[in-house]
Design a protein around this nucleic acid. Sequence first.
DNA 1: CCAAATTACGTCGACCGTAAGAATC
DNA 2: GATTCTTACGGTCGACGTAATTTGG
Lengths: 294, 294
Amino acid sequence: MDPHLLTTFVTVARHGSFSAAAAELGYTQSAISQQVAALEADLGLALLRRRPVEPTPAGRRLLEHAEPLLLRLRAARADVLRTAAEPRHLLRLAATPLAVNPVVAARLAEARARQPRLEIRLRMCRAERLAALVAEGRADLGLADGIAAPSDPLRLPDAGPMTTTGVTEEDLVVALPAGHPLAGRASLRLADLIDARWLRTPLCPPARLRDLVGEGFPAGLEYEGDDVRTALNLAAAGHGLTLLPASAVPAGGGGGGGVCAVPVAAPRLVHRVELLHAALPPGAAADLVAALSG
Amino acid sequence: MDPHLLTTFVTVARHGSFSAAAAELGYTQSAISQQVAALEADLGLALLRRRPVEPTPAGRRLLEHAEPLLLRLRAARADVLRTAAEPRHLLRLAATPLAVNPVVAARLAEARARQPRLEIRLRMCRAERLAALVAEGRADLGLADGIAAPSDPLRLPDAGPMTTTGVTEEDLVVALPAGHPLAGRASLRLADLIDARWLRTPLCPPARLRDLVGEGFPAGLEYEGDDVRTALNLAAAGHGLTLLPASAVPAGGGGGGGVCAVPVAAPRLVHRVELLHAALPPGAAADLVAALSG
DNA sequence: CCAAATTACGTCGACCGTAAGAATC
DNA sequence: GATTCTTACGGTCGACGTAATTTGG
């Protein structure tokens, strides 16, 4: 179970070819063959079927383990090395699309006002990748958003020891087309919407939606992008409902096409933004964390 | 970052001695010294201060990563090997103290009635260790209990890809001494108890309690065991309140000393039991999982 | 001065590359 | 028969043990 052999195995499985893996890793075919053989000998069972090269059941199981394992290994290395890094003034921030709400943006501004030398590079990414980015040190700080019960932490993929801090919580609303029968309501319950069509978008993770609304709700349009205005336009046009933080839906229901935001009364849920970071690089990071935490 | 070197490093740190680690691992002092040196050279920084032997800040950080990392490595190996294991009729079950409630016990009985050859060895353990036990294959199935919002999964330490299934959810009650001012109430809110003294016991994880009740509640007695009757007796005697599943508190408020169980009305919480398992060993396991899932 | 970690050095084994040998499409 | 993986074999480098050396209490 040497990580070295594990990466080789993963690469071979991904390419479906020993020679391609050899090319990528800078080894000869022969070495790859020996490494795979060594791993199989170590475990005492076949991991790959040859010609065509594809994982056996045991191999598939190992693949499920190997990826997070290697991620955590890289994360550990990055985290330890960070303790000896020199101070930086450029902070690389990674955020999910809905994480930079007005409050977060304002706090970032405060921090920059207090620390003129502070530079921030903000990069967007999906929630699943965010923890990995931060863990591996490819981002210094992460801002993740999600739906949770009030004061409950978000469920983020575990990529090793990391600090998570709640930043904001705000009301959750359902974005309805202006003409929808429930559009005028002061609030509604998700249970009332069990038959509604939902917009499938990474803005509101489908897995979470399934938990909340129930299994097998009729799927509306699937929008693979993460632009909020596009999602709102789609919602306004009746392609499906969306769960969004209140601040993401323009007030008054005006705008282009008319969406109406109705707060979710039950279950009690909030849209939560969380800050996550591994060991902080010395420098401006600690101040920014403090500023964001409020 | 060879796991081999990592285990050596962890062992040295735990013993605070190179020679002791050498004895445990079956190496010479010299080898240990070289291994630690190799790890430090690889990372480019000191991990241990010598004489006395204790971790540097970077070393402490690495230790935080190393333990879960090595656990996951063992877990991966065990999981893959299990795919090739021969069928077993003895199932090793691990459970947290409150997980085997009447419903779970009844379902276990059903399964045994249907499968006469099925043997079950039940072993108790704390929640923190349960996921590790199952992941490493030292138990085939795990039954974990905890407090969560209705239909929300439990927060278990992540020890790799595992299947979790909800088994039961039941009401959560506060165990109050019979004479307590709130004892007669039909229900109460946790917010009402913010100033109460709580019994600190692994039966109700203190971390979770802090989340629910708030920071810095006055700590009552700390009970390190996990016997429910003892906890009830302590609660009856006024040492502090406890959150328990309804079925754990004898009805009628009678019993030895008098505790009164008052359901928790807000926040909406349940006591949840979850079944977790990695790859199922062939044999009776799948049936048992089905029986427990209801 | 003693216990304990480091360094020096020799040996053995692991791993990779070259090259020849199977196996499958 | 060509491509692709496997096996054979030799060289190199790394890892461990023995033993001498240094360091710190």
